[in-house]
Amino acid sequence: MQLTWHGHSTWHVTVGDTDLLIDPFFDNPKTDLEAADLDTPDYVLLTHGHADHIADAGAFSEATLVATPELVSYCQEEFGFEDAVGGMGMNIGGTVECGDAFVTMHRADHTNGIMTAYDVDAGMPGGFVISDTEPMRGETEDATTFYHAGDTGLMSEMIDVVASFLKPDAAALPIGDHFTMGPWQAAIATDWLDVDYAFPMHYDTFPPIEQDPEEFAQLVDDAGSDAEVHVLEADEPFDLGP
Score class of each variant (00 low, 15 high):
Met1His: 12
Met1Arg: 07
Thr4Ala: 11
Trp5His: 09
Ser9Arg: 08
Ser9Cys: 11
Ser9Ile: 03
Thr14Cys: 13
Asp19Asn: 09
Leu21Cys: 07
Leu21Ser: 06
Leu21Asn: 03
Pro24Gly: 04
Phe25Glu: 06
Leu38Arg: 10
Thr40Asn: 11
Thr40Met: 02
Thr40Phe: 08
Pro41Asn: 06
Pro41Ala: 07
Asp42Ala: 14
Leu45Thr: 02
Leu46Arg: 12
Leu46Thr: 08
Thr47Cys: 13
His48Thr: 11
His48Tyr: 13
Gly49Cys: 05
His50Thr: 14
His53Ile: 07
Asp56Arg: 02
Gly58Arg: 00
Glu62Leu: 04
Glu62Thr: 06
Ala63Val: 05
Thr64His: 06
Leu65His: 01
Leu65Pro: 02
Val66Arg: 06
Thr68Tyr: 05
Leu71Arg: 05
Leu71Gly: 04
Cys75Tyr: 00
Glu78Trp: 15
Phe79Val: 00
Ala84Lys: 00
Ala84Tyr: 00
Val85Gln: 01
Gly87Met: 01
Met88Ile: 13
Gly89Met: 06
Met90Ala: 03
Gly93Val: 09
Gly93Gln: 04
Glu97Ser: 10
Glu97Val: 09
Phe102Gln: 03
Val103Glu: 09
His106Ile: 15
His106Lys: 15
Ala108Glu: 04
Asn112Trp: 07
Asn112Ser: 15
Ile114Tyr: 05
Ile114Gln: 08
Met115Val: 15
Met115Ile: 15
Ala117Trp: 10
Val120Pro: 09
Met124His: 07
Asp132Cys: 05
Met136Pro: 01
Arg137Glu: 13
Gly138Ile: 06
Thr140Glu: 14
Glu141Asp: 14
Glu141Gln: 13
Ala143Phe: 13
Ala143Glu: 05
Phe146Ile: 09
Phe146Glu: 00
Phe146Thr: 00
Asp151Pro: 01
Leu154Asn: 02
Leu154Ile: 05
Ser156Thr: 14
Ser156Ile: 11
Ser156Phe: 07
Ile159Pro: 00
Val162Leu: 09
Phe165His: 12
Leu166Asp: 12
Leu166Arg: 11
Lys167Pro: 00
Lys167Leu: 05
Lys167Tyr: 04
Pro168Lys: 03
Asp169Gln: 08
Asp169Lys: 12
Ala171Lys: 15
Ala172His: 09
Ala172Val: 13
Leu173Gly: 12
Ile175Ser: 05
His178Asn: 00
Thr180Phe: 07
Pro183Met: 01
Thr190Met: 03
Asp191His: 05
Thr205Gln: 09
Thr205Lys: 09
Leu219His: 12
Asp221Glu: 13
Val229Leu: 04
